[in-house]
Nucleic acid binder design. Structure first.
Lengths: 133, 133
DNA sequence: ATAATTCCTACTATTTTAGTGGGTATTACC
DNA sequence: GGTAATACCCACTAAAATAGTAGGAATTAT
């Protein structure tokens, strides 16, 4: 049970952008070097982050990325959701907490699953990017 | 971010055993059929569960498995821990909540990771197998 | 003796995750 | 206008984890 490195990489990169909020855009080359992450891999993460409107991009020399809004208004949940995909840690419950058990069952296990899922979600939702600076 | 099917299968099987606590041992063939899980796959899960002393086995005809102790005293955490391995959902924190970041950093991200990990663990630890009957 | 069981070892297939390569389009700056 | 730095795009490969299969041996109630 692990979050992918995508998520950790993405969080680290977003923290960098948050530190530069209202300042210059930050290039991926810079982040990749500082954080020792493959730049190519980062590029793909940022395509996703941009698509979900968490970041803005500026092309060309001295371009880069910046946060799309105040880090106070970006939940950790928002970032994880983009990079990790749906937060449905068990196969018989979807990300909305609905039971999708292939056996159509409501066995005792689903009670656990829903509770764990809720704990993860509410933790991620309670934290803002600005909390990490 | 998913728990493996091992864990869901194992929980479902353990619920079956709990329902038969103080009654006859339950065979894997029975569970496999009822729960539509590969028996061979279940066998391997139970090797692990037995090794960690969560279940007892009885060989031979009319044998099977039974819980090693009262379901009140088996935490969901204990089961998940065996089947899922260490609960360290991020690469830079181990299952004891210690930072093992390859960059030796204590970046803002670790605050999130530890909090999420704690939320998962305390949820799993708060629930007993007996709660699911 | 037989059939039902746990127990053991090894192998294969599938899926997910991580990472690489080779470019094009855009833009600040000299 | 040339150059270097950047985002952006597509396709491929590598590695790891997960899931599932195969063929048995040892044990035991009946």
């Amino acid at each position: 049970m692990k979050f992918s490195t995508r998520t950790t990489y993405g969080l680290r990169a977003m923290i960098k952008l948050a530190a530069n909020y209202n300042k210059a855009a930050v290039s991926l080359a810079h982040i990749a070097k500082k954080e020792k992450i493959s730049q190519k891999y980062l590029e793909r993460l940022f395509v996703a982050l941009k698509k979900e409107k968490l970041v803005l991009s500026e092309k060309g020399a001295s371009g880069g990325y910046r946060l799309a809004r105040d880090p106070k208004n970006i939940r950790i949940y928002d970032i994880v959701r983009v990079l990790e995909g749906e937060i449905n840690p068990f196969h018989c419950v979807n990300d909305k907490g609905e039971i999708i058990c292939s056996q159509k069952c409501h066995c005792g296990a689903t009670a656990i699953l829903i509770k764990v899922q809720g704990a993860i979600n509410s933790t991620l939702q309670s934290m803002k990017l600005s909390d990490l600076l």
